[in-house]
Design a binder for these strands. Structure first.
Lengths: 111, 111
DNA sequence: AATTTACGCAACCTTTTAGTTGCTTTTAAA
DNA sequence: TTTAAAAGCAACTAAAAGGTTGCGTAAATT
């Protein structure tokens, strides 16, 4: 579960994949591979590859129906990204609170 | 500023770079390139390259002092990641709230 | 039954990434 | 003033990323 975080980071690092994910999140129904690739100027195969990254990260789930493969978004893995970023939230406030947090941290390390 | 988001995503997509960033955030003083690369088994040059990515994303800032280059972390660009993820937060709750949010969104689109 | 659609698979290409090593330059220490 | 340390630069390599095209196959359509 937690060793997957690299895959999640990698999946969302690409702008095309973020766009695919966004389309799927906003879609009212699951979308087939072709329906998704209609949104892009690149080939269907290229889109398929991107979807595989998203699937590998758990951000997209696929259900086969006949000759079609319907994709839907699963945002849950993004929690891990959220958690990662949340830790640094303390450090993007103003300089003073950065100092305070910094000193706090040093104190924590010694205890 | 906002077109930089790709660089930020790419910078944090790599585990080594996340580690470098983390070391710098926790460090009480700015660290030289050598001091940073001491934490890793790879060569100094490899670490330098990673730092360049971080610098390009604004996550690391460097001050030259004599023959040394002192690096410190700047977490502010992570705000953009935070904002990106925050949008999807509504979708990783339970299924019911996902449905509610979904319907809400459809309503929003029509108005 | 013939054709179209939706898709996977595989081969291929180009660029980027992640790493290496060797060499030079600048700065600091002996 | 010789030597050692800190770092940049450049060339090189291997692997991964991002894309293409051609082809095969299964499922719908006509």
């Amino acid at each position: 579960m937690s060793r997957n975080i690299n895959k999640i980071f990698k999946a969302i690092a690409d702008p095309t994949r973020r766009e695919i994910f966004h389309i799927l999140v906003l879609a009212s129904t699951a979308l087939s591979i072709s329906q998704i690739s209609d949104h892009f100027s690149m080939s269907r195969q290229a889109v398929t590859k991107h979807i595989k990254y998203l699937e590998g990260a758990g951000l997209v789930e696929i259900k086969d129906v006949g000759r079609e493969r319907f994709c839907h978004a699963n945002a849950i893995p993004l929690k891990e990204i959220n958690d990662w970023v949340a830790f640094y939230e303390k450090f993007w406030d103003d300089k003073l609170s950065r100092l305070v947090n910094h000193l706090q941290q040093k104190a924590d390390q010694k205890s």
